[in-house]
Design a protein around this nucleic acid. Structure first.
Lengths: 346, 346
DNA sequence: TTGAAAGCGTTACCAA
DNA sequence: TTGGTAACGCTTTCAA
């Protein structure tokens, strides 16, 4: 049978309340008692019972804020599903999720959303936001006010975040390169379509991709790099233009806008003739995988990310369990034969 | 705030104990009270609180039996890791796992292991066993005695199992075919190495593989099919023989014995020249993926399977939550670039 | 057939 | 600085 507070109390000759205060540093405890209790807890390898923690936590429910650029963004819909699943499975422990859904990555709107979450009583916030000074300042201020922040999906530079939950973009780029290698293209000529040069994740995906190709000693060259601002219309225009001018044998899409890229490749009469490598499992990639235009897409488990972020934040708030500095989603390769598998059984 | 027993008791004008008995059909409850309580619970959408359930369940701990052919089998080591992880995360709810590890698939030994688990007080058993009459009879008998069984990793024909937790072998075969298609081999000549023609999973993997190739309209032919009894030495010998005789441009390994296959391909001077398609992430496949001999291996999340089986069984025993008839692990494609990712964060 | 109460492990509040 | 106690939601046992 597991060691309980009561066991420690008995061994230390004090009451359970005192043990509780000693272990959690709340309230006053005399130095001797403190030392004794901590030592005994250590020796007995005390681990608090989660069921009991949960039951007790019901008395003061915890609200986890969620800030996502999820307006009209199917990727973040999955993150939300995961967060809701976590809410559901933690609701018996007193958890609730507050969602602020914004459109795009404008920092003014993100700042408003942070304020709204605090206003609504969030005890902590999981945020997929932008790595700019004004946001970092806000996060530092929130943390100082006792509202910790977990960076979700987009990593943030030093700003006191509790943790990063997301993928390793460089690594997913390397995996995309691995799939390209399997295709066995001779001397590939690669057109790179990125979302934005300001998005760290997109840059890392490109760096990882090229790094791996170089490592493998492939005689590749690039047929240019275009920036589509994650917009399908721009992606279509720029890709078509580049294809007609540059003659690529392969397109690498580091960000969104895949639908536009597919359209351009079709208009150039190259659909199914040159492979498109892309990321994530969203309707646009999914349909191109089905048609064979995308041989493989490298996904990052958005459901899991949402689930994890909420769960880690809750455990921190309710049980003061410190999350790992980084929780990295395992990359998932999807091809035509497994693109229909659905994610998110928990 | 969620609806509690107390709320129902108040609404029905009875005590909490009565509500409990009514909802769970234990003890005597008058028809009128029963009807009233059930109706109110329904209306209020009552969902028992898991933390409280867990806390109360601590009083009578639940033991989940685990029967695995895991002696000298790295695949099942992962299943065990998953089961232990589940035990750990459920230990605060009164769960314990009893492991019986056997060598191979001999039904006599499996029967002994079933008996041992019952003897040791297992309230339910998760078993990776063989689909033969004497085993099915034992499972029926166990179930009748109130010890339910979940089929783990190997599906069993009708024998009253509570659930099947494992992969869809046909589907993983199709995915392997998908990877072969991506490689773009012209008119592939495929040597099929199976573990055993008596293993349903192996047969299904072959069927799915061939089915998908046919669907895709590939002009393939087989360079024979050999049966290695999941043994490396046999696999090496049979593969070498077949390669020298038949001249395959690709080897498909449906079961274990991959290490032997790799050895044979090397001895035939074909390592890295003809692709080997295999399953699971075990040391043998892993090292062949690293060296490039296996372009891709299709894995079935053994950790998850172990975790899931134990968790479902526990929830059934402790909270009478009926598990789904089938819990199918999502297949995972591993190539050189993601073979080092480690599984089993829960 | 029903109700009352104790107990599971933890937290939080009030009194000493 | 400490101890006692009620409370969280559910199960179980004992009395009525």
């Amino acid at each position: 049978m597991a060691v309980t507070l009561k066991d420690i109390a008995a061994a230390a000759g004090v009451s359970r309340g005192t043990v509780d205060r000693a272990l959690h540093g709340r309230g006053d405890v005399s130095p001797e008692v403190l030392e004794r209790v901590l030592r005994i807890a250590q020796e007995l390898n005390y681990r608090p019972n989660r069921a009991a923690l949960g039951l007790a936590a019901l008395k003061k429910p915890v609200r986890v804020g969620l800030l996502l650029p999820s307006e009209r963004n199917p990727f973040f819909d999955e993150v939300i599903r995961g967060a809701r699943a976590a809410e559901e499975s933690l609701s018996d422990f007193g958890a609730a999720v507050l969602l602020e859904s914004v459109r795009g990555y404008g920092s003014a709107e993100h700042l408003r959303a942070f304020a709204a979450l605090e206003e609504r009583g969030a005890g902590g916030v999981c945020a997929a936001t932008v790595d700019v000074p004004e946001i970092r300042r806000e996060i530092r201020a929130l943390s100082a006010r006792g509202v910790p922040v977990i960076a979700l999906n987009s990593e943030l530079s030093e700003c006191g975040c509790l943790s990063y939950v997301g993928c390793d973009y460089r690594q997913t780029g390397r995996i995309a390169a691995g799939m390209l290698l399997l295709l066995g293209l001779r001397d590939p000529r690669i057109l790179i379509v990125t979302g934005s040069n300001r998005m760290r994740g997109h840059n890392e995906r490109i760096a990882g991709f090229l790094e791996r190709l170089r490592e493998a000693g492939v005689a590749f060259e690039t047929a240019g790099q275009v920036e589509c601002e994650d917009d399908d219309a721009a992606a279509r225009r720029l890709t078509l233009d580049a294809l007609q001018r540059g003659g690529a044998s392969c397109v690498y899409v580091a960000g969104a806008g895949v639908g536009g890229v597919g359209q351009a490749v079709r208009e150039a009469g190259l659909l199914g003739k040159i492979p498109i490598l892309a990321f994530d499992d969203i309707p646009a990639t999914r349909s191109l995988v089905r048609s064979g235009a995308i041989p493989a897409t490298v996904c990052q488990q958005p459901f899991e990310q949402g689930y994890r972020a909420v769960k880690l934040m809750f455990q921190y708030l309710a049980n003061q369990a410190t999350p790992p500095a980084r929780w990295i989603a395992r990359p998932v390769i999807k091809i035509r034969e497994n693109i229909e598998e659905k994610d998110g059984e928990v």
